Amino acid sequence: SEYETMLTEIMSMGYERERVVAALRASYNNPHRAVEYLLTGIPG
């Protein structure tokens, strides 16, 4: 799925699956924002 592709691409940058899933959830599946959250911390 498109979601799995995003997940895999972000994980390939060296992040753990659960952190990527949390970041995508926080960003409403916006991959650019999710990466930003992984770099700066997930808000909330």
Rank of each mutant, 00 (worst) to 15 (best):
35 V>I: 15
3 Y>R: 03
41 G>E: 10
33 R>Q: 13
7 L>E: 01
12 S>T: 07
13 M>C: 09
12 S>W: 05
37 Y>H: 05
40 T>F: 14
39 L>V: 11
40 T>I: 09
42 I>C: 13
16 E>Y: 04
18 E>V: 07
39 L>P: 01
28 Y>V: 09
37 Y>S: 05
15 Y>A: 01
35 V>Y: 07
32 H>W: 11
24 L>E: 00
42 I>W: 11
42 I>E: 09
39 L>N: 10
36 E>S: 05
1 S>N: 12
22 A>E: 14
42 I>K: 08
13 M>S: 03
3 Y>L: 06
40 T>M: 13
20 V>Q: 01
31 P>A: 10
22 A>Q: 10
14 G>E: 02
44 G>V: 13
4 E>W: 10
16 E>P: 14
42 I>D: 08
34 A>L: 04
38 L>R: 00
5 T>F: 10
39 L>Y: 05
35 V>H: 04
40 T>P: 03
35 V>Q: 05
18 E>A: 10
4 E>G: 06
42 I>M: 11
41 G>M: 10
42 I>P: 08
25 R>G: 07
8 T>H: 14
34 A>K: 00
39 L>F: 06
26 A>W: 09
5 T>Y: 10
27 S>E: 05
3 Y>P: 02
17 R>Y: 12
29 N>S: 05
38 L>D: 00
22 A>D: 10
24 L>V: 03
16 E>L: 06
9 E>Y: 14
12 S>H: 08
25 R>Y: 09
14 G>W: 06
1 S>V: 12
28 Y>W: 08
31 P>T: 06
32 H>I: 15
12 S>A: 14
7 L>D: 00
15 Y>R: 01
5 T>P: 09
2 E>F: 11
43 P>N: 10
17 R>D: 02
14 G>A: 02
30 N>H: 05
18 E>W: 13
6 M>Y: 07
33 R>S: 07
26 A>S: 06
39 L>A: 10
3 Y>S: 03
9 E>N: 12
36 E>G: 04
3 Y>D: 04
10 I>H: 01
13 M>G: 03
5 T>M: 14
4 E>V: 08
38 L>P: 01
38 L>W: 03
44 G>M: 12
33 R>D: 10
23 A>L: 03
10 I>W: 03
32 H>E: 15
43 P>D: 10
20 V>S: 02
3 Y>V: 05
40 T>E: 11
8 T>G: 09
9 E>A: 14
13 M>E: 03
29 N>K: 04
3 Y>W: 11
34 A>Y: 02
28 Y>R: 14
30 N>E: 08
28 Y>M: 15
21 V>G: 02
34 A>T: 04
42 I>F: 13
16 E>A: 08
14 G>N: 02
12 S>P: 01
40 T>C: 15
26 A>K: 08
19 R>K: 12
40 T>H: 14
34 A>S: 02
36 E>P: 00
28 Y>Q: 15
24 L>P: 00
16 E>T: 12
14 G>D: 02
23 A>V: 03
33 R>H: 08
5 T>W: 11
13 M>D: 02
12 S>G: 12
29 N>L: 08
6 M>F: 08
14 G>T: 01
40 T>S: 12
40 T>K: 11
16 E>D: 13
5 T>C: 07
32 H>L: 14
43 P>M: 12
39 L>W: 05
11 M>H: 02
17 R>Q: 06
6 M>Q: 04
33 R>Y: 09
9 E>W: 15
19 R>L: 14
19 R>S: 12
25 R>P: 01
19 R>T: 11
14 G>Q: 02
5 T>V: 12
1 S>H: 11
17 R>A: 05
12 S>V: 06
8 T>A: 15
25 R>C: 15
37 Y>V: 06
11 M>K: 01
18 E>G: 08
12 S>I: 06
4 E>K: 07
21 V>Q: 07
16 E>S: 12
9 E>G: 08
23 A>G: 01
19 R>D: 14
21 V>D: 05
1 S>M: 13
22 A>I: 08
1 S>C: 14
3 Y>T: 04
4 E>H: 09
31 P>L: 14
13 M>W: 05
25 R>S: 09
15 Y>M: 02
38 L>I: 04
19 R>C: 15
21 V>R: 06
38 L>K: 00
34 A>M: 03
8 T>Y: 14
26 A>R: 07
25 R>Q: 12
40 T>W: 14
18 E>C: 14
31 P>S: 06
15 Y>C: 02
32 H>N: 11
8 T>E: 13
3 Y>M: 05
37 Y>A: 05
18 E>I: 07
3 Y>K: 03
16 E>C: 14
19 R>W: 10
15 Y>D: 01
24 L>W: 01
11 M>T: 05
18 E>Y: 07
30 N>F: 03
37 Y>D: 03
25 R>L: 14
32 H>A: 15
11 M>F: 04
2 E>H: 11
30 N>V: 07
28 Y>H: 15
12 S>Y: 07
5 T>A: 14
36 E>V: 09
38 L>G: 00
11 M>Q: 04
12 S>D: 09
36 E>T: 06
23 A>Q: 01
43 P>Y: 09
13 M>T: 02
10 I>R: 00
33 R>C: 13
33 R>P: 02
25 R>K: 15
20 V>D: 00
35 V>K: 08
42 I>G: 10
8 T>M: 14
30 N>Y: 04
36 E>M: 10
3 Y>A: 03
13 M>N: 03
23 A>E: 01
8 T>W: 13
1 S>Y: 12
35 V>E: 03
29 N>H: 06
15 Y>T: 01
27 S>H: 07
24 L>G: 00
23 A>C: 03
1 S>I: 12
29 N>M: 10
42 I>R: 07
1 S>F: 11
28 Y>S: 15
27 S>C: 12
31 P>I: 13
41 G>F: 12
38 L>Q: 00
20 V>Y: 06
22 A>L: 08
30 N>A: 04
30 N>W: 04
20 V>W: 03
6 M>V: 07
10 I>F: 06
12 S>K: 13
19 R>F: 09
26 A>V: 08
25 R>V: 10
13 M>A: 04
13 M>Y: 07
41 G>H: 11
37 Y>F: 12
7 L>T: 02
23 A>H: 01
44 G>P: 14
4 E>Q: 09
26 A>P: 01
22 A>V: 07
4 E>T: 08
15 Y>V: 02
39 L>H: 07
28 Y>D: 15
24 L>Y: 01
11 M>S: 04
6 M>S: 04
3 Y>E: 04
23 A>D: 00
2 E>K: 11
28 Y>F: 14
3 Y>N: 04
13 M>H: 05
30 N>L: 04
28 Y>T: 08
29 N>E: 06
10 I>E: 00
24 L>S: 00
17 R>L: 08
15 Y>Q: 01
5 T>N: 12
15 Y>K: 01
2 E>G: 09
28 Y>A: 15
25 R>I: 12
30 N>S: 06
38 L>T: 01
18 E>N: 08
19 R>M: 14
43 P>V: 11
44 G>Y: 09
13 M>R: 06
14 G>S: 02
8 T>R: 15
31 P>E: 05
42 I>A: 09
33 R>L: 15
31 P>D: 02
11 M>V: 07
32 H>T: 14
41 G>N: 09
2 E>C: 14
15 Y>S: 01
36 E>F: 11
14 G>P: 01
19 R>N: 09
33 R>W: 13
16 E>I: 07
17 R>F: 09
21 V>S: 05
1 S>G: 10
24 L>C: 07
29 N>Q: 06
10 I>V: 03
13 M>L: 13
25 R>F: 08
42 I>Q: 08
25 R>T: 09
10 I>D: 00
9 E>L: 14
32 H>C: 14
2 E>I: 11
20 V>F: 06
29 N>V: 04
22 A>F: 04
26 A>Q: 08
7 L>N: 00
1 S>T: 12
10 I>S: 00
9 E>F: 13
7 L>I: 15
44 G>W: 10
5 T>G: 08
27 S>V: 07
35 V>W: 06
27 S>G: 07
17 R>S: 04
18 E>R: 05
44 G>H: 12
43 P>F: 11
10 I>P: 00
22 A>H: 07
17 R>M: 08
6 M>N: 05
39 L>R: 14
21 V>T: 06
6 M>T: 05
23 A>S: 03
3 Y>G: 02
17 R>W: 08
37 Y>T: 04
18 E>M: 07
22 A>S: 07
43 P>S: 09
36 E>L: 11
17 R>G: 03
24 L>Q: 00
19 R>Y: 09
22 A>G: 05
15 Y>E: 02
26 A>L: 11
8 T>S: 12
23 A>M: 03
16 E>V: 06
2 E>T: 10
4 E>D: 09
6 M>L: 10
26 A>T: 05
9 E>D: 10
30 N>T: 04
7 L>H: 00
39 L>Q: 13
21 V>Y: 04
34 A>Q: 00
36 E>W: 11
41 G>V: 10
5 T>S: 12
36 E>I: 10
39 L>D: 06
44 G>L: 13
37 Y>P: 00
16 E>R: 04
10 I>Y: 04
14 G>K: 01
34 A>C: 03
22 A>K: 08
13 M>K: 06
25 R>H: 12
40 T>L: 13
23 A>Y: 02
38 L>F: 03
23 A>P: 00
26 A>G: 05
2 E>Q: 11
24 L>D: 00
